[in-house]
Simulated assay, not measured.
Amino acid sequence: MGRSTAPRPPPSASRSPARRPTTPASTCSSTLAPTCSSSAWARRTAGWRTSSPAGNAYREAGACGLFVPGLLDLDALGTVARETGLKVNAMWLPGAPAPEQLREAGVSRYSAGTAIAPVAYTAAADAARAFLAGQDKAMAASLNYAAFNDKFAK
């Protein structure tokens, strides 16, 4: 007998209604709100079309948002946002739509994932190589310590 390939709901969806936590709407607007990822769910199933049912199960379990990494189709993101009523989160990938397009489609949060860190590491490595070669133009042109700290002042 082979292993079933039928999609399974997220674990939170199988809880009995009496034990299922609920999240009041006021919690969803706070800085710390429960968000569930649909990535594992989407990999086991037929793709983004399962994000809406999974999102509904997550919402019923108390989630306020749904993170669907890899989904950048504007129509599909809009459908997931409308069908679930959750704040939909998208992650940047090469060729991603512009942030404004994502916002118009219904995306509430746009993540760079780990994409920014390698850019910073590359710049640091380049600066270190230039420094060791006696070329300090890049470092001289960068933000000084005070200007850098001012970026974090409120």
Rank of each mutant, 00 (worst) to 15 (best):
F131V: 02
A57N: 01
A147R: 12
S52V: 15
A90H: 07
A130N: 12
P11V: 12
F131W: 06
R129S: 10
A61S: 09
M91L: 10
L66M: 04
G65D: 00
F148W: 13
P34W: 00
A90W: 06
I116A: 14
A138E: 11
A96Y: 05
A120K: 01
I116Q: 10
A25S: 09
Q135L: 06
A61I: 05
P21W: 02
P24Y: 07
A25P: 00
L74P: 05
E104H: 11
G113L: 06
S26N: 03
V107F: 03
K87N: 12
S52D: 10
A90M: 04
S39V: 14
G62C: 03
A141S: 11
T79H: 15
E60L: 09
L74M: 10
N149W: 14
K151G: 14
R8C: 11
R103N: 06
L74D: 03
M1W: 04
A63M: 02
D136L: 10
A98W: 12
P17N: 04
K154R: 15
L32Y: 07
P69Y: 04
A138H: 06
A127F: 02
T79S: 15
A42E: 15
A33W: 01
T23P: 01
D75Y: 04
S111R: 10
S37T: 13
S29I: 11
Q135N: 12
T50S: 09
A153E: 09
A90G: 07
A153C: 10
A123L: 13
P21T: 00
A133H: 05
A120P: 00
A42N: 13
G70T: 07
T23R: 07
N149H: 14
G2C: 08
A40L: 13
T50C: 05
G70Q: 06
C64M: 03
A140K: 10
K137V: 07
G62H: 04
D75N: 11
R49I: 15
Q135W: 00
L132V: 07
A18R: 06
A133M: 03
A105N: 03
Y145P: 12
D75F: 06
A57Q: 02
S38N: 10
N56Q: 14
T122F: 11
A133C: 02
G134Q: 00
F152A: 15
R19Y: 05
G113R: 05
A96T: 07
P94T: 04
C36Q: 02
S29A: 10
P99D: 01
P21V: 00
A141R: 09
A112L: 14
P97G: 09
F67S: 09
A98H: 15
G2Q: 11
A98E: 15
P69F: 04
E83C: 04
L77R: 03
L93C: 08
C64E: 03
A63G: 00
G47H: 02
P10Q: 02
R109Q: 07
R19S: 09
K87A: 15
T5R: 07
T45E: 11
R103D: 08
T35Q: 08
Y58A: 14
A127S: 08
W41Q: 12
Y121M: 14
K154Q: 13
A124P: 01
V68N: 03
R82Y: 08
S14Q: 13
R59L: 00
A76C: 03
R109N: 02
F67P: 02
P97R: 13
K151D: 09
A147D: 15
L132H: 11
G55K: 06
L143H: 07
G106W: 05
